[in-house]
């Protein structure tokens, strides 16, 4: 079994758990994914599988991509990602993976990787959680500013700003993984995974769902 699947984030809602309490969940349409290529220690130096997800019209694709997909006996795919495996697994090119590998009882927790929502150019309070300055007590025009960025003694040589100093700048739209999310429900008829909590990225974005590395069961 390959403990990974590519999918689309559909959105969030809530369901009721066995105690009758509302539980926040994210609905992910995952798979079916086709194994386009298997990488192994002998030929490539590492073990991995290349997964393809989402249909793409051949005329929107390139000939090399069509050829690559044809070797796996399928049509070109919109998204292609490689997933590293710790050891070689019994899987061959052209295999189709569905949400069934996350079916109840087999995988309890997953890690979900996606591109987080872009926040644009954000100040230090939003981006790094700085406290800002007072609303009153004589503070003028600097209510959300960062404060000092270094004195004459910092940076070794003095009169310089340390590298990595947290400042304002572009926030979000980076690859993020949220680990240890519980799988609430698997709907193999509709290729849906219902995952507890939130998942990176806007609705409609591509996410990679993997079996959790940290939380088993």
């Amino acid at each position: 079994m390959i403990p990974a699947l590519l999918g689309t984030k559909i959105g969030m809602t809530q369901v009721v758990d066995e105690r009758g309490a509302a539980e926040p969940v994210t609905v992910v349409k995952a798979g079916p994914c086709v194994v386009l290529r298997v990488r192994s220690k002998e030929t490539d130096g590492y073990d991995a599988v290349q997964l393809g997800y989402g249909e793409l019209k051949p005329h929107r694709s390139t000939k090399p991509m069509i050829g690559h997909a044809a070797q796996a006996g399928t049509s070109p795919k919109r998204v292609i990602r490689e997933v590293r495996l710790s050891e070689s697994t019994a899987v061959s090119r052209g295999d189709v993976l569905t949400v069934e590998q996350f079916a109840e009882g087999t995988v309890g927790y997953v890690d979900v990787t996606g591109i987080s929502k872009g926040k644009g150019f954000a100040g230090v309070m939003k981006r790094h959680g700085f406290g800002g300055k007072g609303a009153s007590h004589g503070v003028e025009r600097k209510h959300r500013s960062a404060g000092g960025i270094g004195g004459s003694a910092t940076g070794g040589t003095g009169r310089s700003v340390k590298k990595g100093k947290r400042m304002a700048g572009h926030m979000g739209h980076v690859r993020r993984t949220i680990s240890g999310l519980r799988v609430v429900k698997v709907d193999s008829d509709n290729d849906l995974l219902v995952i507890h909590g939130s998942v990176p990225g806007p609705n409609g974005s591509v996410v990679l769902v993997r079996r959790s590395k940290k939380r088993m069961g």
């Binding site: 559909i10 959105g11 809602t13 369901v15 009721v16 969940v25 609905v27 349409k29 429900k185 709907d187 509709n190 849906l192 219902v194 609705n203």
Partner: peptide
């Protein structure tokens, strides 16, 4: 409203 989300909610309504 997303039809797929409604599908998930349906049994809880």
């Amino acid at each position: 409203r997303q039809p797929l989300i409604e599908l998930v909610e349906q049994p809880y309504l």
